[in-house]
Every structure is written in structure tokens, then in C-alpha cells.
Write a protein that binds this DNA or RNA. Structure first.
Lengths: 354, 354
DNA sequence: CTGAAAGCGCTTACAG
DNA sequence: CTGAAAGCGCTTACAG
């Protein structure tokens, strides 16, 4: 802990100037010259004295005063559906890290995936005069992004994409294709998808990627095998139950577009007496820390969540600098585990036995 | 979206004053008088005109300028071990809600439970001139809290307590006692505890509460049955494996001081061929959203995480106002589920059969 | 009831 | 190389 003496009043430029008997503008200039020599700002000796004293007194510039002058706050606003979703929390960790590295602070707020709340939280951020916004919760067809553009607010999208705006996401389409390849090659032909919320590009793209590849492989994917769902465990359980309730052949494999939904579905299947990994394959998405540690380890597609958050910051900095930036889709990787290891043969046998 | 015109420059008091042909101080006074009549600030009519125009132009005061004058930022700093821990993320949701209600903004940072990082993050928050700090990651014996007191920084503790400083926590001791009662009354006599990190009061108190009550009931609790652990699934799995590896009688029940550790332990037990809920009872803590939805639903002690976060803000506001505040321990509640339903008789039978 | 001034802490041309 | 001034947007006694 520095001797920053923050008790009542922090050290100011004026304090330093008075103690050295020089003008505050000189102190300011020195502290802003990056070169050691302080070229143009002050004599070498003055510069040294200023820096030494600043350090000794634990000087740290008042960010409010600086902002008022420079009209920039070095603060970034981040809006996510909910931080209690580990996926978004991890992306935010990446945001925090990268923002700190470029000396930016971050405000985060939860929008609970509600359109009104998204707007409300964005307004709060803008009232705080953040320099830019990272939106992790964009909905398909939302008009918020257009309004932000009209108001010249610098922003980027994270986690979910929206055509026409820069975003940092996982390559969800490719991830969906990986799952299709895996299930097809292990012999499955009858599959279902727990597809997530229809307003989220993550679920939509993962589903589309799967279906696209499945068709290329010659598979069939009837529309009623694609179930929209909430993204949490409860949503996965409901979709899993719905799947079992339906007439007709039970699928031998289920692809849930995120790990939490997959876990909920596993619960539903188990409650119905099915053994996941034997009677039925289940695959999730994101490869959260839980997946590998579950009682029945879950096959999942890893999305580089930290990296997605980090890149979002990098992109936002360029947008704030007035540059055009292209969207990034981070590569996805499949991790096969026990929940889908038996393959369709085992699954069929299991179903007959059950 | 208001007509807040944020494009390049936001509307200022000066703009409003100019348009109305009055002085900015009058505008400021009106906008600060809470009563409709603006008693003392301006005539009724002037007040009305000011307010109407402010609304029309979407005026929102510049927080940096306000802070510079008032020397308060209305910003709160929150430090947590990691937001990807759903427990802390949920507490933070409570913090965000309560802070927004009192018109405060919040910065959050992850310290990864590292002492240096805690200090570093606290310094960043203070350099940002937050009005107060909420620490969700205090370590037993940490000197950081003392340093903050010396520097007159208003702060409160959340999640973990530290004797002598105000904290908003779950009544972890009582929670531990609930688990002891439950396991004892279902016939268990041989139990083990996966106790979490020794620097965290949560794990320590939950363990102490359990042991205290266990002794009251006449139970025995050898020291080697208490295993420190990390708080995540991986830590729970390691502790679970360690437990099985040991010589001597395997316990019929295991209390893990948080849900994630419990899930990891369940994985280890299952890998060893044990069926949780039949061969062995497992109990967790926090009752995160996952617990009830797991393939084998997990018995857990519910801690009111949102409320813990909300109270932390209320306490901090009072500390910032110079009041003395007492710590709050929020009541805990036990939810019994399949993971511990069979009781010791079932557990013993299961063990013999296996 | 309203105006005018001072000042929060900083930055940045502009002189000299 | 260094000083002096202006001003970012606001609040708050102080006059009148």
C-alpha cells in the first residue's frame, strides 16, 4: 500500500507544485511526458525532482478532474444477461483483464435478457459518461444497436453477434458442425437439439451449424426435433422432459446448446430411468469448468470465453479510436467425454434393455 | 431512449440557462430542490420552466463535474475472488440492484483470492476515488483491512467475515449445525467434511458449526476427517479421492462446504463405483441453482446470496455516513434432496453390496 | 427570487 | 525551459 495518504484529501498537483516551488502546469507536463528526459516539458533536473516527489507523496491524478478536462472517462460499460451465468462471468474476467491493461475501468450490469432493462442499463452507463459499451446480451432484431449508432456511442458486441455490427464471439456455427460430425461418426442417426432462446445468436448459430452439417452428412432433422429452451438448468430439464413426453422414437443423442441446459436435460433423462452415456448421448456447449467434473463427464464444445472478452476490449478500443473493425469468431474445439462415448450402438442397446 | 443527444456534446446546465435566459446557478438550484415548488430555489414558474426544458433536452448532469465539486463519486468498488463463482456473482447482483436504487454505480474486480491482487485491485478502486469498498474475499489474518481503516477508507465485508469489522454474511455456523442435525437424525455416525480453504471464514464457520453440533449430539469427529480443499469442483474431486484413498472405514456421509466442491466429490465417488444417495450421502452448501437440478439432486444449505449483497450496500452506505454498523448474519435453511435421502442404513447396505 | 463569483483538480495552447 | 491563463461542468455560500 502506497503512502497515498487518502485519509481526507488526496495529494494534488498543486500540493506537489507548492512543495517544489514551481507551477502546477510544469508538474502536469512532466507527469505526462512518457520519455524519461521529459523532452520539452521541463529540464532534466526538474523532471526528476517532480517524479521523485510524486512517488514519495503517492500522487495519483484525480480521474474526475482529468475526465472533466479531457472529456474522456477511461471507463467502459459492460452489459450482460446475468453474471451468475458462468459463461458471461468468464467473458467479463477477460474484459476486466484487458481493460486494466489499457488503464480502463469497467462497469458491469445485468440486464436479465429483458429488452427494457437493456435500455435502462445502457442509459445508466451513458449517464455515467462511459467512453464505450460492450453488449453481451444483444437480441435478434433489437433496435437498441441502431439507436446507439444514431447517438454515435462507440460499442461492440460480445458473446452474441448481430449482423452488421462488430462482435467478438465463438464460432458457434463451426461448433455446431463439430457436434454433428461427432454424433454422426459414432453412429447416431436420430438426434434432437435443445436449442436455447431464439433471440440469441449463440443458440441459433450452434443449431444452424449442426443442422447444416447433419444434412451434408445425409442425416435427417425434422423440425419438431429442435426445441427452443431457456439457457439454464431448469430450461434444459423442461426441454428434456418434453422430448421424452413426445410420441415416436426417442432420439439416441441430444445436443444442448449450452452446458447448463445439458445438465438439466441429463437430470430429466436420469429421472426417466435412462443412463446418460449408455442409453442416450448428451453433448453440451462452452465446456465450462463443470463439464469435465460432472458425475457423468459431459462432452462439450469449448469456447474461448476469456479470449472472447479480451478481444471485445481490443475491438472497442479501436472503435473508440474511430477505426472500422471486423467481427471476430473464435475457433471452437470439441471435447469428447463419457456422456457421449458409448455411441449409437450402445445407446440403442441400452434403450432396448430399459 | 431519451432525446439525450449524446452525439458529440451532452446538454449542460449552461445550455439550459442560455436557452431560458437565466443564470446557471438558478438552474442548478431548481434541479436540486426536491420539492415541486422549489422553495427558496426559484419562483414556481421559473422552476417549472427549468424542469420542463431539462426534460425536453434530456439533460443529465455530468457526474465527473459533480464529483469534482462534491468530492464524492457515488461509485462503490466491489472486490470478489472470482465472478465465475456463481455464489459471488449472485451476491454481486444484489449489490448492483441495491446500489442502483440509491443511485450508486459499482465497479467489480476479481482478486482470484490472491493477497497481492487484492491490494492491487483495492488501489485501482481507490485511485478511481470510489466512495467505499465492499470486500467479498477477505482472508483470515489479512492486514489489508487494517490498512484501509488507517486510511479512513469506508468499507464493509461481504460473504466472508473478519472479527472486528462489519460484514454481511450467511450464518455459516448455524448452517453447519443444520447439516449435523440432518445427518445425525438420518442415522449417520461416520462422516467427513470437505472443508474449503482455511483462510475463508465461510468454510471455517460451516465446519466449526457442524463439529460443534456433532459433538453436542454425541458424535465423534476425528481431525483427519476434516479435509481442507479448494472451493471449485476440481478441489472437491481431489478431496473426495483423498477420502477414498485413506485407510480405515469409509464415511457414510460427506459434508462439502460448498456446492461446487460437493459436485466434484460426487464425481470422485461415482468414479469409484459408489452411488451417491444410496451408498453414501453428500451434502453441499449455498443451494446454488444447480443443486436441485443435478442428475442426483443435491441436499444443500441455502444462503440468501442476493440478500447478502443487498445488505452489504445498505451497511456500506451507513459506514460512509459515519455511522457504526453491526454485522449481519443471514439465516440459513436446509433443503434435503436425493443425495442424502437414503440415510445411513441405506448407505451401509449399499457399501456392503458394493 | 435571482445573479455573480469562486473553486473542485486537471490539461493545454500560448507567451516569453 | 517555465509560467500564467482559460476552461471542462458543476455546486454553494453570499449578496442584493
Amino acid at each position: 500500500m502506497d503512502s497515498a495518504g487518502r485519509g481526507r484529501a488526496a495529494v494534488t498537483l498543486k500540493d506537489l507544485a507548492a512543495e517544489l516551488g514551481i507551477h502546477v502546469s510544469t508538474v502536469s507536463r512532466v507527469l505526462h511526458s512518457d520519455t524519461d528526459v521529459a523532452r520539452g516539458a521541463a529540464s532534466k533536473e526538474t523532471a526528476r525532482k517532480v517524479r521523485d516527489l510524486a512517488k514519495l507523496r503517492g500522487y495519483s491524478p484525480d480521474p474526475q478532474a482529468t475526465s472533466l478536462r479531457t472529456r474522456r472517462t477511461r471507463a467502459i460499460g459492460v452489459i450482460v444477461p446475468r453474471l451468475s451465468d458462468i459463461v458471461l462471468a468468464t467473458m467479463y474476467e477477460g474484459v476486466e483483464e484487458a481493460a486494466a491493461e489499457s488503464n480502463h475501468s469497467t462497469f458491469v450490469m445485468n440486464s436479465h435478457d429483458d429488452l427494457d432493462e437493456q435500455r435502462r442499463k445502457a442509459e445508466i452507463m451513458l449517464a455515467r459518461r462511459v467512453d464505450g459499451l460492450i453488449l453481451g446480451d444483444v437480441h435478434a432484431g433489437s433496435s437498441l444497436v441502431d439507436d446507439l449508432v444514431k447517438r454515435h456511442v462507440p460499442f461492440v458486441l460480445m458473446n452474441r453477434r448481430y449482423p452488421g455490427f462488430p462482435s467478438s464471439t465463438c464460432d458457434d456455427t463451426a461448433g455446431g458442425r463439430l457436434v454433428a460430425d461427432h454424433l454422426w461418426s459414432t453412429g447416431h442417426r436420430s438426434v434432437a437439439i435443445i436449442a436455447g432462446e431464439t433471440y440469441a445468436s449463440t443458440g441459433v448459430d450452434r443449431t444452424a451449424g449442426f443442422v447444416e452439417r447433419w444434412h451434408e452428412l445425409g442425416g435427417e432433422m425434422p423440425g419438431d426435433r429442435i426445441l427452443p429452451s431457456r439457457f439454464d438448468t431448469e430450461g434444459g430439464r423442461q426441454a428434456g422432459e418434453e422430448l421424452l413426453r413426445r410420441a415416436g422414437e426417442t432420439p439416441t443423442a441430444v445436443f444442448a446448446v449450452n452446458d447448463f441446459a445439458a445438465i438439466g436435460a441429463m437430470g430429466a433423462f436420469r429421472a426417466a430411468g435412462l443412463v446418460v452415456g449408455q442409453d442416450l448421448a448428451v453433448v453440451g456447449f462452452n465446456d465450462t469448468s463443470l463439464a469435465a467434473q460432472l458425475p457423468i463427464p459431459l462432452t462439450s464444445v469449448r469456447s474461448p470465453m476469456l479470449e472472447i472478452g479480451r478481444s471485445a476490449v481490443g475491438m472497442l478500443r479501436r472503435v473508440m479510436a474511430g477505426e472500422e473493425v471486423a467481427s471476430i469468431r473464435h475457433p471452437a474445439e470439441l471435447f469428447v467425454r463419457e456422456s457421449s462415448e458409448a455411441g449409437a450402438v450402445g445407446a440403442r442397446r441400452g434403450l432396448r434393455a430399459g
